[in-house]
Design a protein around this nucleic acid. Structure first.
Length: 776
DNA sequence: ACCCACACTTAGTAGTAGAACT
DNA sequence: AGTTCTACTACTAAGTGTGGGT
């Protein structure tokens, strides 16, 4: 069962481990005591044994896809180049930046301008802290910080919103209209407009995106913990009901056709659709599937169908393939029709009205039933994910809104009005028992504010990261084991951008770890390796069962501490047995308001981007070269954060095609050059205008071709370097978009080159507010 | 101190719409 | 005009972190 995520060894280990897993915890406890008592002695001793290899040396044969192997190398190389440099640089610069940053925060960034633009001289009073500066604090604590802002003098009256709320009901969709015209001046006009709109008959729903987007970032944020005041929506879209198979498509049991009841047939089709996937051959998958399938069978079926291996779904599988083929072959008109229908649904269900604005919903369709496929070696793979009915759904909306109607003949599980949360609907999923939500799109105010806030927190970390680093270095020497562990873990989180590593329930999910949950088996210590001292080799499966493999030299103290932590432990014991994420986060909270482990990832990612951009961009480069630099900077971050992807299936081919094009271009270039030469010769002999002109033309042609060639080559490089690195995740979640926007502005690069449409929508706030001087 | 429920962010990928190519 | 290629988007799993209860 493992092949997908590679790592046989891991899986076996974990399997073996599972049985006595709980014991470990107890063991740990015992150990902890010991550790405490002996720690001093140990410190002395520890230096002796460095790597206590309890592990089977073969362990690291990862059968991972080559991706990983290649990746490792690449990663190592890159890391060396990028990361380490960064580290040192970073630290120096941080100090300076810290100062600068403060200043900046106070007004250099354009936010202020904006605010002014909308023309509100605001009443200085109230919450001065409201962020004019566009700076958010988490409601709880950040006030002090943010408060530094000078311009409390202007901000907008928030009441506007409030007052509009009532109208909102009526108006609902009209809100966006107004925005088109008015955009910046928010409030006053609204009223007038509203009126107009109201009188206007009927549907104004024209599908638009408001040309003028609402600039929520110029408005004040609620401070009372409420996420909205008004919320109205149409409820989710349910999965289409099951359509029984046509009579000629049969299921066979033990070689003979077998007519399945409707319920059993539906579940069978889920399996049939996946036949091509390797995981349908895995034991766990088959076992889980069969067990759940039986639950849907009638008693006769249950009695007869006793062996999954005798089940033949191939005819069903063929049928579905044919269907999808047919779908592809549909005529234009048919496709058009479907498209229109989808748009209609989107218009109707894809938006909600939240506080006077029509906002896009992220996922308004309920997840259809099917077979669960977790990532990596998931113990629950193959289980039936059941169909969600209206009776399972909790609706959240405001009291004064028109509540969504459940489909005819059904009812919601509950309708509540909780404005302390952002979701519109939720249900409990049956595989893990977790709650799923329907929430807004990233372009929405509610997501955007949070995102912005996240980066502000990371920027605050920037200003105290030196202090924190000094502190954890000190803590490496602590007398207390728990403090040392905390300090070493934090060092990893900071230096390597590891995730926090919450504990997980064993047997419920794939066996993956983060920093705090690392086990002894996940690291190896080398007092010396490849000429470097104190090297730690990490090898573990992280989120999504993506392998993290890295060898890095660490400081001697860290190394010694690790030896200490590993003493007397089994491979499957926790490395940091006296630490967990809540202890760590509690500590971080004391170091800085709002600081948690994940902030380090955000901070290190963003600061790395900023540095790399500075370092790699040449103002003389042409556009493609600059973009290559950007992508490289982005790549440095993706490598740091270990964002991988499976190499695209067509990768080789694509590269080949590109190469062909390059070769052609080269030929073209040389012949163009030849022509130029002869044209020059002609011009020399002839001395006439015509030949001179010809020379000019040829010259231009050569230039053009050179440029094209260059562009192709850059593209090829970029692609090659990106083979198994995913840039999207960091771009979307870790890199302060203002850094990118500032870079674009500085080098006069259209943002479209960096962000596609969706991304521009998500980062509208940053695009609007960052100027070229923005400094993270 | 721990546990659990909950809310929300972060993650990779399958499938497809539409661009690019022939 | 059909085919191929690619960039997106939709989807949903898998994390993080908080807070309340015991």
């Amino acid at each position: 069962m493992s092949s997908d995520n590679g790592h046989k060894s891991y899986q076996m280990d974990s399997g073996a481990r599972m049985n006595d897993s709980h014991k470990h915890k107890d063991k740990h406890r015992d150990k902890e005591h010991k550790h405490k008592e002996h720690k001093k002695d140990k410190e002395r001793e520890k230096s002796k044994h460095s790597n206590s290899d309890h592990r089977d040396p073969s362990e690291k044969k990862h059968k991972d896809r080559d991706r990983e192997r290649e990746k490792e190398k690449e990663k190592e190389r890159e890391r060396e180049k990028v990361k380490h440099k960064d580290d040192s640089l970073e630290r120096h610069r941080d100090k300076e930046k810290r100062r600068e940053e403060k200043m900046k925060a106070h007004g250099a960034d354009g936010k202020h301008k904006r605010e002014k633009e909308n023309g509100f001289a605001s009443p200085p009073h109230i919450k001065s802290e409201t962020d004019d500066n566009g700076y958010y604090h988490s409601p709880k604590h950040e006030k002090s910080v943010k408060r530094q802002y000078e311009d409390e003098s202007e901000y907008k009256p928030k009441k506007v919103k409030v007052e509009n709320e009532k109208k909102a009901k009526k108006r609902k969709h009209e809100d966006y209209y107004e925005e088109e015209e008015e955009e910046e001046d928010v409030k006053p006009k609204k009223k007038t407009k509203d009126k107009k709109l109201e009188t206007a008959p009927g549907k104004k729903k024209v599908k638009k995106e408001p040309e003028e987007k609402w600039k929520w970032w110029e408005e004040e944020r609620a401070t009372d913990g409420s996420k909205w005041k008004f919320l109205e929506h149409k409820g989710p879209v349910f999965a289409p009901p099951y359509e029984p198979l046509p009579g000629h498509v049969r299921f066979y049991y033990d070689g003979k056709p077998f007519k399945l009841s409707n319920g059993a047939e539906e579940v069978a089709t889920f399996f049939a659709k996946m036949l091509d996937h390797e995981y349908t051959t895995k034991d766990a998958f088959r076992k889980n599937f069969f067990k759940d399938w039986k639950k849907e069978m009638t008693s006769e079926e249950k009695a007869k169908l006793t062996d999954l291996n005798k089940c033949d779904f191939s005819e069903m599988n063929d049928y579905f393939k044919a269907q999808s083929e047919a779908r592809k072959q549909m005529s234009k008109e048919e496709k058009q029709k479907i498209k229109e229908e989808n748009e209609r649904i989107l218009e109707e269900y894809g938006f909600c009205v939240m506080d006077n604005h029509r906002e896009r919903i992220g996922n308004f369709r309920i997840e259809p039933p099917g077979l669960f496929r977790g990532r990596g070696n998931h113990p629950k793979m193959g289980m039936l994910k059941r169909r969600i009915r209206p009776e399972d759904i909790i609706i959240n909306c405001s009291k004064d809104s028109e509540r969504p109607k459940p489909p005819a003949g059904t009812r919601w599980k509950e309708v509540r009005h909780d404005n302390k949360v952002t979701w519109l609907a939720s249900w409990t999923e049956n595989i893990q028992g977790s709650i799923k939500y329907i929430m807004l799109n990233p372009s929405s105010r509610i997501k955007g504010e949070k995102d912005w806030q996240k980066y502000e927190t990371a920027r605050r970390l920037k200003s105290c990261v030196d202090r924190i680093r000094n502190q954890y270095r000190e803590d490496w020497k602590s007398k207390e084991m728990r403090i040392r562990q905390r300090a070493v873990a934090l060092y990893f989180i900071d230096k390597l951008a590891l995730r926090a590593g919450n504990e997980k329930e064993e047997g419920e999910t794939a066996d993956t770890v983060g920093c705090c949950s690392l086990r002894v088996e996940h690291i190896k210590l080398y007092p010396e390796l490849d000429k470097q001292d104190y090297v730690v080799e990490f090898d573990f499966l992280g989120k999504d069962s993506i392998r993290y493999y890295n060898k890095i030299p660490v400081e001697k103290r860290v190394f010694k501490n690790l030896q200490l932590f590993m003493e007397n432990k089994q491979p499957e014991d926790d490395l940091f047995d006296r630490l967990n994420t809540s202890i760590l986060n509690k500590h971080l909270q004391e170091l800085m308001d709002g600081l948690t482990a994940k902030v380090f990832r955000t901070y290190n990612a963003s600061i790395t981007l900023q540095q790399q951009l500075k370092q790699l961009t040449c103002s003389d480069d042409n556009l493609p070269a600059k973009i290559l630099s950007y992508n490289r900077a982005n790549r440095a971050v993706a490598i740091l954060c270990n964002h991988q992807r499976a190499p695209p299936k067509t990768f080789e081919k694509t590269m080949q095609n590109l190469q062909t094009k390059i070769d052609e271009k080269k030929k073209q270039l040389s012949s163009a050059k030849k022509e130029l030469k002869s044209a020059k010769a002609d011009a020399k002999t002839l001395h006439d205008d015509k030949s001179r002109k010809a020379v000019e033309t040829k010259k231009k042609a050569v230039q053009r071709i050179e440029e094209q060639l260059m562009k192709l080559e850059v593209q090829a490089t970029d692609r090659e370097e990106n083979k198994q690195i995913a840039l999207g995740t960091s771009k979307l979640n870790y890199l302060d978009p203002r850094i990118s926007v500032a870079w674009c502005k500085k080098y006069d690069i259209p943002v479209e080159k960096i962000y596609n449409k969706t991304q521009r929508e998500k980062f509208a706030w940053a695009i609007d507010m960052a100027d070229e001087d923005f400094e993270f």
